[in-house]
Design a protein around this nucleic acid. Structure first.
Length: 469
RNA sequence: GACCCCUUCGUCUAGUGGCCUAGGACAUCGCCCUUUCACGGCGAAAACACGGGUUCGAGUCCCGUAGGGGUCACCA
């Protein structure tokens, strides 16, 4: 049997980080078993669904590299099929018409709540004679749930979970306006789509019992279930806006790499021994449901950052360079030319050790493109120059100008020799030089900077630093 | 409130009855490296929620308590 998993987001906002993890687990499971991963947009809530949200979901998944098989489907296009299933259930006596008004239902719920009983519909129309039915009043269709006994779900993550059937109410499958409800639509779509593994957040665990009965009523085979724990914010509460970024796009904008986000999300609730850095390929071959934990995990930005820093260092690819260039343009208004790009390529291995995100990385790359202007804006750096730094620079300028073999070794030999002649600690030379070339007190190693900037640019910057009053 | 789920360092986790004096990672602290900031290396501090069982032996199994979470729509 081919494994078929699905990711069914409702397009009411941009791709949520928690949804992304659900998508990842489904994707991984399908890929691991050489199965299919399908994407279904659950847009039956017309009022809240937007086109932008659909785009955001496609965009987010694509960015993460979570590719789906076939075209995405839209639930709203299947409502006739869903309604037909409901009517069929009605014909076969598995469901019935209910004429209660919303007000009646609310009163019912209030009463149940007050009595400490399960809050639900009291089935008053379940066995009522159809002849009693009021004419010309809209009805909803409710499914008949078993009245006694119990139902157990064999969940791949949660284990066997059993519930008393009296906890299950005759929920609505077809609204008064003839449209299907979510509970019906998912089941029909999953069945029609051949979905045989349902991996989703454990906020759906309770729904599984209801859906299971629907499968039975329809006479369809029941999928394997795996309810994975939710991600919580740092305070242990459900992850929401007030915890900062919640959409994958926001993480992208803040300079995170997709592989870092994927790796982080994967480790939230899933483990493979002591492994921490796991590539997507490894994840595909290792992933399985039995190593998914059952406790909710808190989102820890610092760990994500550390993973991101790792991928920034290891990656060193063209994508990272493109990312830096894009950041430079967006955040600093800097357009990078060919020379600039070359410098960034040369500097990347050095810069990457000093950044946790693309944003930070690009901030440290600014000096490569934009020469510092004097006096320096960074106060500490300017202080170094003013407090004797310029004198030191004047003293080493000639030695630098004389160097033709502009490479790290020669540069180092020359500058260290000069430091000794001047009886200065090497830092006394390096820091003013750094301030002059980078406009900052922190940068890659000074010889690397000299080489990356190249001879002409380095000497020009040095000259300008020396000339200032 | 009812029902369901969960509980190992601050956080993510390893652990499937003896290999646990409880391991790793992030964060924290210290030392080393050093031209700055980093990276890196070494080291430290830091956890089995509590109470009962079962067992020769429990972080691992069972029960209870406490705490946390989720669900209770003509939303998905």
């Amino acid at each position: 049997m081919t494994v078929v998993t699905r990711f069914p987001p409702s397009p009411t906002g941009s791709l949520h980080i928690g949804s992304a993890r659900t998508a990842l687990f489904n994707w991984l499971y399908a890929r691991h078993h050489a199965g299919q991963f399908i994407l279904r947009i659950e847009d039956t809530d017309r009022k809240r669904s937007t086109k932008e949200a659909v785009e955001s979901i496609f965009d987010g998944l694509t960015w993460l590299g979570l590719d789906w098989d076939g075209d995405a489907t839209f639930q709203s296009q299947k409502i006739e099929r869903h309604a037909a299933v409901a009517l069929d259930l009605l014909d076969r006596g598995m469901a019935y018409k209910c004429y209660c008004t919303p007000e009646e239902l609310e009163a019912m719920r209030a009463k149940a709540r007050a009595e400490g009983k399960p809050v639900f519909y009291d089935r008053r129309w379940r066995d009522r004679n159809p002849d009693d039915a009021p004419q010309d009043i809209p009805f909803v269709v409710r499914i008949k749930m078993p009245l006694d006994g119990e139902t157990t779900i064999q969940d791949q993550v949660q284990g066997d979970v059993t519930i008393a059937n009296e906890q299950l109410d005759d929920f609505i499958i077809l609204r008064a306006d003839g449209t299907p409800t979510y509970m019906l639509s998912v089941v029909v779509d999953d069945h029609d789509g051949g979905v045989n593994h349902v991996i989703r957040g454990d906020d759906h665990l309770n729904n599984a019992f209801r859906q299971l009965q629907l499968y039975r009523a329809a006479g369809w085979s029941i999928p394997e279930y795996a309810h994975i724990p939710l991600i919580h914010g740092a305070d242990g509460q459900k992850l929401s806006k007030r915890h900062g970024a919640t959409s994958v796009q926001e993480y992208r904008r803040e300079g995170f790499l997709p592989e870092a986000l994927l790796n982080y999300l994967l480790r939230l609730g899933w483990s493979h021994g002591d492994d921490e850095v796991i590539s997507t390929d490894q994840a595909v071959s290792w992933f399985d449901l039995d190593t998914v934990g059952r406790a909710p995990a808190r989102f820890d930005l610092e760990k994500l950052e550390s993973l991101n820093a790792h991928y920034l260092r290891e990656g060193g690819s063209q994508t990272v360079i493109d990312g830096v260039i894009a950041c430079l343009r967006e955040k600093h208004g800097i357009i990078v030319d060919t020379t600039g790009r070359q410098r960034i390529e040369l500097a990347l291995p050095h810069l990457a050790q000093r950044a946790k995100t693309l944003i930070e990385l690009s901030a440290t790359a600014v000096f490569l493109i934009q020469a510092p202007s004097f006096p320096l804006v960074e106060r500490k750096a300017q202080k170094i120059l003013v407090n004797g730094g310029i004198e030191v620079l004047r003293n080493i300028q000639d030695s630098l100008v004389e160097i033709n073999a502009w490479n790290p070794d020669t540069l180092e030999a020359t500058l260290r020799a000069r430091a000794e002649e001047l009886e200065l600690g090497f830092g006394k030379i390096a820091q003013p030089l750094r301030a002059a070339l980078c406009g900052s007190t922190a940068s890659p190693g000074i010889f690397d900077v000299l080489v990356i900037l190249d001879r002409d640019e380095s000497l020009a910057r040095l000259q300008r630093a020396v000339e200032q009053e």
